[in-house]
């Protein structure tokens, strides 16, 4: 990997995410000050800066990582199901943005999340249907993944509401770091690189969040976006690759659930630092298990076919050596 690839694949996503977060915060500040002037000194809502920006930030920041990964050769809707990354990024960006505005309507929020996760399945898997995945299996997969990941997102989103900004991004950082080796050892190098692009995005969130901690939230669309992006790589690794162990991918999929451990910490102000630590340790434990199991379960190299020819018996070898010396 040369300097340009590192720049475009890792640095640029982080910069884009950071700039978008800062931009969202500035917009929030502007709106807040205008509202404060309009209310003539009345108490204003503390709100959350750029809660609506989290999903678009993830989608927009991931785009250059995908483009550089493909050597600038890409189309929006390729026949190849493993390259349909941009449609998923568009889906999570737009749906996450909408979710941020309707998040108070719980049934709609849950339905939207389930729809996004099912949509990721329906974008990624159909090229394998019906010869690898039957139509019935595809429908069952879309429904199952939609409902399952919506429940997962609900739990993680709850943590995102309690642990804001840098803390929440820090909790998920081990997950993004572990995604690289877990997907790589599952035989999906492109997914490993794309999954790793979440690392600079989360780091950018941490950096911005350190300054504007209380105003930043990854809830309201951001959690859905992060999970949906990773879901696509899990689906590709599981269904497009042969003989891929399911356990590491399953662990990687549910690792963000560890963030919900932060909810176990009593909500006292002096313990505010403890929540992301507890959640982060839980996420790291599950994500680490995913990477480790991927390493342990990766298919072992088969016998070298050329080594199948039995070696000459020692006596024969010695005889041949002696013959060679005489000649």
């Amino acid at each position: 990997m040369n300097a340009i690839e590192i720049l475009l694949g890792f640095v640029v996503p982080g910069v884009i995410a950071g700039v978008l977060w800062l931009g969202a915060w500035l917009v929030w500040r502007l709106l807040r000050s205008e509202r404060a002037e309009g209310d003539a000194g009345e108490k204003t809502s503390s709100g959350a800066a750029g809660a609506w920006m989290s999903a678009p930030a993830v989608a927009l920041a991931m785009t250059p990582a995908f483009v550089v990964l493909n050597g600038y050769h890409w189309t929006f809707w390729p026949a190849n199901g493993t390259l349909r990354v941009l449609p998923v990024l568009a889906l999570v960006g737009v749906a996450g943005l909408i979710e941020s505005f309707v998040w108070k309507i719980a049934p709609l929020r849950h339905a939207m999340r389930a729809g996004v996760f099912a949509g990721v399945v329906l974008i990624t898997i159909p090229p394998l249907s019906p010869h690898i995945v039957s139509t019935e299996q595809l429908i069952a997969l879309a429904v199952g993944v939609g409902v399952g990941f919506a429940l997962l997102a609900h739990a993680v989103d709850a943590a995102a509401h309690r642990v804001r900004g840098a803390g929440f991004a820090g909790m998920l950082l081990p997950w993004a770091i572990a995604a690289g080796p877990a997907l790589f050892f599952s035989g999906y190098a492109n997914g490993a690189r794309l999954g790793s692009a979440l690392v600079p995005i989360l780091i950018a969130t941490i950096v911005v969040g350190l300054f504007f901690y209380r105003q930043m939230r990854f809830a309201r669309g951001g959690v859905t976006a992060l999970l949906a992006v990773m879901l696509q790589y899990l689906l590709i690794a599981q269904f497009y690759n042969e003989n891929t162990p399911t356990l590491p991918l399953l662990l990687l999929g549910i690792a963000p659930l560890g963030a919900a451990a932060a909810l176990l910490v009593p909500g006292k102000q002096e313990r505010v630092w403890l929540r992301p630590v507890v959640g982060g340790v839980a996420v790291a434990a599950i994500a680490g298990a995913a990477a480790y199991s991927a390493w342990m379960l990766k298919p072992k190299e088969a016998e070298n076919p050329w080594a199948m020819v039995p070696a000459a018996p020692p006596a024969l070898a010695a005889q041949q050596s002696a013959d060679a010396d005489r000649s």
């Binding site: 190849n80 492109n190 497009y240 298919p299 016998e303 076919p305």
Partner: peptide
């Protein structure tokens, strides 16, 4: 290619994507 690990990787999503193609 004379290396089973590499052959498996070549068949998968990163390269030939043999399941789809």
């Amino acid at each position: 290619t004379g290396n089973s690990d590499r052959d498996r990787h070549l068949r998968q999503a990163d390269f030939f994507n043999s399941r789809q193609f």
